[in-house]
């Protein structure tokens, strides 16, 4: 537990000092979502209907942007080997990395999402569904994304490959996340979608660090 906290602190410190990665992800999130009304037309009656889905799709892509660097910088400078040898297990490391990734991208997406909801003219009743579904869904993106980041460690063309591996696994999150917002816009109950998302989150929390650790072990050996 202490190891987990220390690792998360280290990651956050690195993110704060070093990179503009997290900010870039949010800028991408807003910019990409703003593109859609230009493409499909800015009909105020249509935007609320497609808004939830577009916000979720763009959130998936934005979360993926910074995934590639989750382990690669540590792998290149050798700190991953030291972390492997440290008493903190690889599973804890995977969990800490996913947590830090969520804190530096997922939370920022969560803060930016209501602004996009305003731009898409979503009714006020859908804001709760948007926030709760993002709160449940974005950690899954970081946890599952960690598996992909560990698998593609040291691969040629890692970025494109990562997208090919991870996007199919993101589809269930997208279906239920966007489904919750659509349900709220249409005035249907959204309990089932949120419960399925919670189930995914719990399963990912239990299984993803373990799979990430297995993938990391293959990369280090």
């Amino acid at each position: 537990m202490i190891g987990l906290i220390l690792l998360v602190k280290r990651e956050l410190g690195l993110a704060l000092r070093g990179g503009t990665d997290a900010v870039m992800a949010v800028v991408f999130f807003v910019l990409a979502a703003v593109l859609f009304p230009f493409g499909v037309g800015a009909d105020p009656a249509m935007l609320p209907r497609i808004g939830g889905g577009i916000i979720w799709v763009v959130a998936l892509l934005a979360a993926m942007l910074s995934l590639e660097r989750m382990f690669s910088s540590d792998h290149e400078d050798g700190s991953l080997d030291l972390l492997y040898l440290s008493p903190v297990g690889l599973g804890t490391l995977a969990l800490a990395k996913a947590l830090a990734h969520w804190l530096t991208t997922g939370v920022l997406l969560l803060i930016a999402a209501p602004i996009l909801a305003l731009l898409y003219n979503l009714p006020a009743s859908a804001f709760g569904a948007l926030i709760v579904s993002m709160l449940l869904g974005t950690p899954i993106l970081s946890l599952v994304g960690g598996i992909g980041a560990a698998l593609t460690l040291g691969a040629r063309r890692g970025g494109v490959l990562l997208a090919l591996l991870i996007l199919p696994l993101y589809i269930p999150v997208l279906i239920f996340g966007a489904g919750a917002i659509d349900g709220a816009v249409a005035g249907r109950p959204i309990g089932p979608q949120l419960m399925v998302l919670s189930g995914f989150l719990l399963a990912a929390l239990a299984l993803a660090p373990w799979a990430t650790a297995a993938a990391l072990r293959q990369a280090i050996e």
Binding site: I147, L151, T152, G154, A155, R156, R157, G158, L161, L164, L165, P168, L169, A211, A214, A215, Q218, A219
Partner: peptide, 27 residues
């Protein structure tokens, strides 16, 4: 497609096979 791409993405075929194996189990 992801499995095939991952298998062939590494200079070391062993590493590709192992990574693809983890992916197959996740998928």
């Amino acid at each position: 497609l992801g499995h095939i791409a991952l298998t062939n993405a590494f200079d070391n075929p062993q590493r590709g096979a192992r990574a693809a194996a983890v992916l197959a189990l996740v998928g």
